[in-house]
Amino acid sequence: MSYNQRHGITLTEIMLALFILSAAFIPIIAVMSTGVRGTQKDETILRGVQLAQKTMNTALQLPFGDLVANRGGAGAGPWVFGAAGQEFSYATASTNLRLGKVLEGTLEYTLVLEISDIPFNFSLSVHNPMARNIASTTPAGWGWQAGVRVPRVGDQTGLFNRYVLTATWFDRGLSDGSQKTYRLVSYKARLHEL
């Protein structure tokens, strides 16, 4: 064995190699930790989103009249459920609606539902039913007024409502971290109450 053959890898090389590997590891560890933090944040968001969707679905299933009656009276609206210091809970045999502060896992979410009335008026082109009976196979003779829209049922109130559910939470606990807000909007016609 010669002297040179016993010197395959020198200490300097090993040190240099370790330095290169360490330098490569630093950004990877940084990316990993960012990923873990991001996943934890996503989890709190997904929990909030799922809770908001579940709550909105429950609210939409319940008759509007029952909700308002359980809140303590009708009034002209908008009706706010679960605002600060006004917890709201209403349960039937199949559903349970809770608004206000709700604990989900280790996080506390605040759910506020606002319902407002949306007045509307249906319009369409009129036709003459008598003319329709006579000219049964020629719709052009049914007395349509093309391009003319007329209101048909008058201004309607109390039949179509806008539901806005707002979920707020802190992403690191009860009051720690930044405050997040998630908002879900839907509408409900009072079909079952007509």
């Binding site: 969707q53 909105m56 509307f120 249906f122 369409l124 082109s125 036709h127 039913p129 329709r132 049914w142 048909r152 049922v153 039949l159 179509f160 806008r162 539901y163 879900l184 909007v185 839907s186 509408y187 409900k188 016609a189 079909l191 007509l194």
Partner: peptide
């Protein structure tokens, strides 16, 4: 879906209010 379902309910409401107009058209 939440938004669209609400609007679809309004269309259904119009159908319930004005069925003969819908069938004629």
């Amino acid at each position: 879906e939440f938004l669209a379902n609400g609007l679809i309910e309004l269309a259904l409401l119009k159908f319930r209010f004005l069925p003969s107009d819908f069938y004629a058209s």
